[in-house]
Each structure stands twice: as structure tokens, then as C-alpha cells.
Amino acid sequence: RNLTILSLPEDVLFHILKWLSVEDILAVRAVHSQLKDLVDNHASVWACASFQE
């Protein structure tokens, strides 16, 4: 069985995303439609995003 980041529970993905910069979140968003939906549909992803580079 192949395990990917998409195999992780949504709460784990949120925990990972909250540590990323805006640039990295946008890069993750571009990788897969499921990740794009996760980022686009949950404001909590952006609430913790680091807007300082």
C-alpha cells in the first residue's frame, strides 16, 4: 500500500500547514487538487501562516 501525505488525517495536515510560510502554503496548494481544496476551504490554514519572510 502506498502512503502519501494525502493519507494523513486532515487535522495532521493542518498541523503541518500551520508551520509553513505563505510561499510554502501556495506551493503545497499547487501540488494536488485535494491540497488546494484543503487550503482554499479552511481559513485556519491562513490564520497561522507566517506573512513575514
Results as ranks from 00 to 15, higher is better:
residue 8 L to T: 04
residue 46 W to D: 13
residue 18 K to F: 05
residue 18 K to D: 07
residue 9 P to Q: 03
residue 2 N to Q: 09
residue 30 A to N: 08
residue 7 S to R: 07
residue 17 L to C: 10
residue 3 L to Q: 01
residue 1 R to K: 14
residue 16 I to S: 04
residue 32 H to N: 15
residue 26 L to S: 06
residue 40 D to E: 04
residue 45 V to F: 13
residue 47 A to G: 15
residue 8 L to M: 08
residue 14 F to P: 00
residue 10 E to M: 06
residue 20 L to R: 01
residue 37 D to C: 14
residue 10 E to D: 10
residue 17 L to R: 02
residue 29 R to W: 02
residue 48 C to T: 13
residue 29 R to T: 00
residue 18 K to W: 07
residue 30 A to G: 12
residue 2 N to R: 12
residue 34 Q to R: 14
residue 46 W to K: 09
residue 33 S to C: 01
residue 40 D to M: 01
residue 52 Q to T: 11
residue 46 W to A: 09
residue 48 C to M: 10
residue 50 S to T: 11
residue 7 S to W: 04
residue 46 W to N: 12
residue 20 L to G: 05
residue 52 Q to D: 09
residue 47 A to H: 09
residue 29 R to N: 00
residue 44 S to A: 12
residue 17 L to T: 05
residue 21 S to L: 01
residue 24 D to H: 03
residue 45 V to E: 15
residue 48 C to G: 15
residue 50 S to Q: 14
residue 15 H to L: 10
residue 14 F to A: 15
residue 33 S to G: 06
residue 49 A to W: 07
residue 37 D to S: 14
residue 27 A to H: 10
residue 43 A to C: 14
residue 34 Q to V: 12
residue 19 W to V: 10
residue 47 A to T: 07
residue 44 S to P: 11
residue 53 E to Q: 13
residue 42 H to Y: 08
residue 9 P to G: 08
residue 34 Q to A: 12
residue 11 D to I: 07
residue 28 V to D: 01
residue 38 L to V: 15
residue 21 S to M: 02
residue 36 K to I: 00
residue 6 L to H: 04
residue 18 K to A: 09
residue 15 H to P: 03
residue 14 F to R: 14
residue 7 S to M: 10
residue 4 T to R: 03
residue 15 H to D: 08
residue 52 Q to I: 12
residue 48 C to D: 11
residue 25 I to T: 03
residue 49 A to S: 14
residue 38 L to I: 15
residue 21 S to E: 12
residue 5 I to D: 01
residue 36 K to A: 05
residue 29 R to G: 02
residue 23 E to H: 08
residue 3 L to P: 09
residue 27 A to Q: 12
residue 11 D to T: 13
residue 44 S to C: 08
residue 14 F to N: 11
residue 47 A to C: 10
residue 38 L to G: 05
residue 30 A to Q: 13
residue 36 K to V: 02
residue 24 D to C: 03
residue 46 W to R: 13
residue 13 L to Y: 09
residue 41 N to S: 14
residue 39 V to R: 02
residue 13 L to H: 05
residue 27 A to K: 11
residue 8 L to E: 04
residue 38 L to P: 00
residue 50 S to I: 05
residue 28 V to H: 08
residue 16 I to A: 01
residue 48 C to V: 08
residue 30 A to T: 13
residue 3 L to N: 09
residue 34 Q to P: 02
residue 26 L to D: 00
residue 17 L to A: 02
residue 21 S to W: 02
residue 5 I to T: 03
residue 31 V to R: 03
residue 17 L to W: 03
residue 34 Q to D: 07
residue 53 E to L: 06
residue 36 K to R: 14
residue 17 L to I: 15
residue 6 L to Y: 07
residue 12 V to M: 00
